Simulated scan of single mutants.
Amino acid sequence: MEGTDDEARLPRLFTAVWPPREAVEHLAGVLDEVRLERIGSQLRGFRLMPTRQWHLTLCFHGPADPADSAARLDRQVPAAGAAPRLRLAGAGMFRGVLWAGVEFAAEPDGRTLRALVRAAGGDADGFRAHLTLARWNAGGLDRRTLPRQLHGYAGPWWNATEVALVRSDQEPAGPVYRTVHSVAVPRRAAGDQGVLGSP
């Protein structure tokens, strides 16, 4: 029981990549255009995730010591490779979750992101990069209901230059995410823009 008490006092943590403002604003503009909230009104408990919470989860730690998790990131992230170039693209669903997908400029970018998952302590083999857009409590949403703009969505390219250790606090209005530690991902070589023709 002592271990359980100690665990209850620890903050709930996850490691993530925050997309840049340009990527968030681009996707948020598309969601406004397609009136996604109206589409989800048929689902019990449907709620859009606030844009300030949009992130790519690399590893969910649960109750954990921030110092231990931060130290691991400090050791492991610099060796993962150069900042991967990616963009938010497409959309899909898990049960009760609508998400935006992630596209890599080139295969090495995908390998680097998976290396960052391992650096955070996550399962790189089972990793599927995505950004949660909405959640609901029960019922289904036919994939064909998604607007064509989301199926074919492709946002601007960006480099994931930082990995964040994030604390999740449950408050009356819902979860609040706070970055408690961050580690820079090594920069790409000058002039390296990923695949030929990528912006």
Score class of each variant (00 low, 15 high):
Pro108Thr: 12
Trp99Met: 04
Arg85Ser: 00
Gly90Ile: 13
Val117Ala: 03
Val102Asp: 07
Phe104Leu: 12
Leu116Ile: 12
Gly101Ser: 02
Arg87Glu: 14
Ala91Glu: 03
Arg85Phe: 03
Gly92Asn: 09
Arg85Asn: 02
Arg111Gly: 13
Arg118Met: 09
Pro84Ala: 10
Gly110Met: 09
Ala83Phe: 08
Ala80Asn: 01
Gly96Pro: 01
Ala115Glu: 03
Leu113Asn: 07
Val102Met: 08
Ala100Val: 09
Gly101Trp: 05
Arg85Lys: 13
Val97Glu: 03
Arg118Gln: 13
Gly92Val: 13
Val97Ile: 15
Ala105Val: 14
Arg111Val: 14
Leu116Gly: 05
Gly101Tyr: 12
Ala82His: 09
Gly101Met: 09
Gly96Lys: 02
Ala100Lys: 06
Ala89Val: 07
Ala115Trp: 02
Val117Ile: 07
Leu98Gly: 03
Leu113Gly: 07
Arg111Met: 14
Asp109Val: 06
Val97Pro: 00
Arg111Gln: 15
Val97Asn: 02
Phe104Ile: 12
Thr112His: 01
Ala91Trp: 06
Pro108Phe: 09
Asp109Leu: 12
Leu88Gln: 07
Val102Lys: 00
Ala91Leu: 12
Leu113Thr: 02
Ala115Cys: 11
Met93Ala: 14
Gly81Ala: 10
Leu116Glu: 03
Ala105His: 03
Val97Trp: 00
Met93Thr: 13
Ala91His: 03
Ala105Leu: 11
